[in-house]
Design a binder for these strands. Structure first.
Lengths: 222, 222
DNA sequence: TATAATATCGAACACTCGTTCGAAATTGTT
DNA sequence: AACAATTTCGAACGAGTGTTCGATATTATA
């Protein structure tokens, strides 16, 4: 049912997640106290626990929501596309686009991957494995199709993720190329390398830009 | 003066650093207590403070020692080599070789870069900037020489560091290719990309394998 | 407006943390 | 053996942590 507006509860939960993600991204999960989050959200310490049952679950909610979106969106985009090179390009584009537009959440997802444990860790890691497997299979197909030799598929896959996930360490939206440029650059780098850059032009593809979390947050922003 | 053996103090300091780095790498800096380190080293809580003046300084000592070695070694290796492509290959090879042989320290250096603050942060960051600048200038030279178009030098540089520094998230010495293979793969990927892999073979280069920290640690190991 | 459901809060608890300090043990020197 | 320097330790302090709980305020329902 389209047009159904999210409940008061959901709206505020999203606000809490978004605010927490920003602080986690800035100070790190372990250096952030629930009191920090209370201050930033304007809520009381105990009031926050109405929206999560532990600090670790709060981290989980951020990571799970974030990864779920990336995974769903990439599947949606790849559906109906057959050529593995084209599919990989879409995956890269979606990944980087979401990263740039949700830097806080993606930093928390990348950098705090081991700050979570037990079942919550497993849940996030399942999605992560699915996502990595998808990319690795694409790269494997490409290797077969194009008879790539001398490059290990596992090394190639994680090198690609390294390129993409490292950006929270250096990327500056006001200084660097935009998300589309970033995708274009990294796609070229991965496929053709630094010295063969002219061979493959990555065409622009339409992907959603706005964060899901952004949608309902306006009410709560000062 | 070669052959001068390190003092008792230095030996044990190195032992403390090495042990701490292993725990920091496993549990993360903020989740590690000085009591954890005391237990692992077999020393008392207060006894540790004879070797560092604060937990943060302990982190600094690990990062500074580690980065200093990488930087010095890379300068030593690059001295006398003119061709920028050759120079970059050496930098990559040295970086990955040191990374694989000192995974704990390099993980602490990469992953805990923002767990340190103030002057100590500045000190480490100065070395980091020098190192990044060195790589970026090499890449810039290569771009000029080979008339590379369509790839941003800054994006390329940090993508390379992303590939290299991400490995602590996935690399398994017992499962993956060794340090030499890793260098070969990543050099090829960066320069020729996944689809142009055959063009450039990265020749093997001799670099030191043993960690500096390893040298004097044997006495203290159980 | 009365009643139920939802949402928020202040205060406190139990615990862990980094760090200090004076004394004791160990090692090196004469 | 006597002394000095180096190294180690136990015990404690004060501050900050995540979390709980009963009560209160707010909103929705009738």
């Amino acid at each position: 049912m389209p047009g159904e507006s999210p409940s008061r509860y959901d709206q505020k939960l999203v606000y809490v997640l978004k605010t927490s993600a920003a602080i986690f991204a800035e100070k790190g999960y372990h250096s952030t106290s629930i009191r920090d989050i209370a201050r930033a959200t304007g809520m009381s310490l105990s009031g926050l626990y109405y929206y999560f049952s532990s600090k670790e679950e709060l981290l989980f909610l951020i990571q799970d929501y974030c990864f779920g979106t990336v995974l769903d969106e990439s599947r949606r985009l790849l559906a109906g596309v057959d050529d593995p090179v084209r599919r990989l390009k879409l995956l890269i584009e979606n990944h980087l686009n979401y990263f740039v537009n949700n830097m806080n959440e993606m930093k928390v997802l990348s950098h705090e991957a081991n700050s979570i444990s037990g079942d919550l860790f497993k849940k996030v890691n399942n999605k992560k494995r699915q996502y990595v497997d998808l990319a690795m299979e694409l790269i494997s197909e490409i290797a077969r199709e194009h008879k790539v030799q001398g490059v290990d598929v596992r090394v190639a896959t994680f090198s690609l993720f390294g390129m993409m996930n490292w950006i929270y360490n250096w990327y500056n939206p006001r200084k660097d190329v935009d998300a589309a440029g970033l995708s274009q650059n990294i796609t070229t780098l991965f496929l053709s390398g630094f010295l063969g850059g002219k061979a493959l032009g990555a065409e622009k593809v339409e992907t959603g830009r706005e964060s899901h979390l952004d949608r309902n947050v306006s009410v709560w922003q000062q």
